[in-house]
């Protein structure tokens, strides 16, 4: 290190009498990554959170390949609000994906405005980001309630194969004796949602299709939704903090950058949730 920098550092040490110790970034220049500790913490937190999500998705993968049969996503996720019974595979989730990407873009723009100390710009784009997040949550709520209305539960899966392995949505009822949800069936004939009867695939019984399907769907999208929800709350806080001029006073909008990192991570996870549940 050059003598000059050393001296400069020495200067910054002089006012220690007033504070018991210096702010944490005293030696930021020592950082091999040249980022502040706050951003670094956020990065590593996201790395560890990525491992949490990966564990869930790997669980999904392992269970899916270990099972005899798996519901066809194009059949399970083919509904769209306001479209009645029209079947539009991948339609609704694509919209959700676009909403989340756009929301992410808005937050990037807010970060960029933050670098220019443009309070108005930050506020505007943050608002966009929050709206996008809220819209996404709304979409997810609709999808959940729709699937629940079709009979999907964490412990029960009404999507069952026929003898050829094609996916059908079967009618289910609550067994009055055990209080558990079961398929409505006579012999091995099951009724589907449209009232058509079909023969249940071999190896499947009244407890429905692969039990883990509903659990994985609600578990993973729920955990992702929880992250989105937290992200929206954080962004709302960021919005009001900006509004109150907190960051202007501090002299930088790094907090918005950190919130942004978290928000993009949520988007990143969605890419893989989309891949695992809807595409593959």
């Amino acid at each position: 290190m050059a003598e000059e920098t050393l001296l400069k550092h020495a200067d910054t040490h002089e006012h220690e009498g007033h504070e018991p110790f210096m702010p944490a970034d005293e030696f930021e220049s020592n950082s091999p990554m040249k980022v502040s500790y706050g951003k670094m913490m956020m990065w590593y937190f996201l790395l560890s959170d990525a491992f949490t999500f990966s564990a869930f998705l790997i669980t999904y993968g392992a269970l899916r390949v270990s099972n005899k049969w798996w519901p066809d996503p194009n059949h399970v996720f083919n509904a769209m609000p306001f479209m009645g019974h029209k079947q539009i595979p991948l339609g609704f989730v694509s919209i959700m994906t676009f909403i989340l990407i756009l929301s992410s873009v808005f937050v990037v723009l807010a970060v960029i405005e933050g670098h220019r100390m443009n309070k108005k710009g930050v506020l505007l784009w943050m608002l966009g980001g929050i709206a996008g997040g809220a819209a996404f949550l709304g979409c997810q709520a609709w999808e959940w309630s729709h699937l629940i209305s079709e009979g999907l539960r964490p412990f029960f899966n009404p999507f069952v194969p026929d003898a050829q392995g094609m996916t059908h949505l079967a009618k289910s009822i609550v067994d009055p004796e055990t209080g558990r949800r079961v398929l409505e069936m006579t012999g091995n004939m099951v009724t589907d949602a449209h009232g058509h009867k079909f023969q249940l695939g071999e190896g499947f019984g009244k407890f429905g299709g692969v039990g883990a399907f509903g659990a994985l769907f609600f578990g993973i999208t729920g955990f992702h939704g929880f992250h989105v929800f937290t992200g929206v709350l954080l962004n709302v806080w960021g919005f009001f903090a900006t509004l109150s001029g907190k960051f202007e006073k501090v002299g930088h909008y790094e907090m918005i950058e950190k919130l942004g990192l978290y928000w993009h991570f949520v988007d990143l996870v969605w890419v893989f949730v989309f891949l695992a549940f809807y595409l593959l």
């Binding site: 050393l6 550092h9 944490a24 020592n30 670094m40």
Partner: peptide, 14 residues
């Protein structure tokens, strides 16, 4: 862990 990592990376003295 987050604290230990960032401290080691960012807060070393001259």
């Amino acid at each position: 862990g987050l604290n230990y990592i960032t401290t080691v990376l960012n807060l070393r003295t001259r």
